[in-house]
Amino acid sequence: MQVLQVVNQRNGLKAAEVAAETGIPRPTVYRLLETLEGLGFVGRDHSSDKWRPTLQTKSLSSGFRDEDWVSQSAVPEMVRLGREILWPLDLVIFNDHRMEIRESTHNISPYSIDHGMVGLMLPVLETAGGRAYLAFSQEEESAQTIRGLLAKERQTHPVMLSDGPLEYVLEQSRKLGVGFRREGYRLATQSISAPIFRDTRVIACLTIIWTGSALSFDSAVERYRDKLVATARRISLALEQV
């Protein structure tokens, strides 16, 4: 139970980290984790090599959140799509006026130039995931979020982004069916992001990132947009079952 407790408290750890936290020898930790996996209490995230508590464990806790459901439902779909397209994917959620990377396939992508992305906090307005969150959230929720962001950053309307005025970027995102980033944040890369819904609320966004010098924006949209949207839709449907 000590191993399960520390994995649950930290929302996922590598076996070596569990051993360091508990003082239990690493070979014993591996055996205990495999036993807990067989019982359905933990699962191994192969993109980060971390052992994470499953829904069965988290549902026993009063601290269970919707974001925990989406992480568990998204990882298998992210790995499947990541192995097909090879470019990395990030699962991001809105958290305290930033977009937090909750899951990532950077570690298994041969094209990734970044690693250790889980937990990174990204700007909302200058990322594809943040723009997808704003574009596809319900109108009042989106407007309230934008007001909070502008107040925090002491900005006023009109808001100019690297890809154009904010309202233009959000409208173009709705037309494309995905949030997008051509310019600005992380200049070497571009990205598109599809919303994941629970009921009518955007609970997370799934983002594909590629190197701009290797693939044009229009080519990437043509190749990957429909696959990305379909994957996000499957995750949304999976959330209806839990």
Rank of each mutant, 00 (worst) to 15 (best):
Q172C: 06
E84H: 08
G38V: 09
L33K: 09
L122M: 14
H106I: 02
W51F: 13
L55N: 15
T145A: 12
A128G: 14
E153T: 13
A194W: 00
R201M: 04
S61W: 05
G130N: 07
R26V: 08
I85L: 08
R65D: 02
S112V: 07
S137A: 15
R10W: 06
P123Y: 05
V75T: 10
G184H: 10
Q138R: 14
Q72R: 10
G177Q: 06
S62G: 10
W210D: 02
L33D: 00
G129A: 05
S71K: 06
A230P: 07
S48M: 02
R225Y: 13
G148M: 04
L150G: 13
F180A: 11
I113L: 14
V70E: 00
K50S: 11
A74Y: 01
I108F: 02
A151W: 03
M1Q: 12
R52P: 00
H97L: 10
L166W: 13
M117T: 03
Q5M: 06
A214C: 01
V178W: 04
L228A: 04
R44P: 09
W51Q: 04
E183T: 10
H106M: 05
R26G: 00
R233G: 07
P27L: 04
G116E: 08
R234E: 12
E183H: 15
V229N: 03
P110F: 10
R147N: 11
L120Y: 09
V42G: 01
M99T: 05
R31V: 03
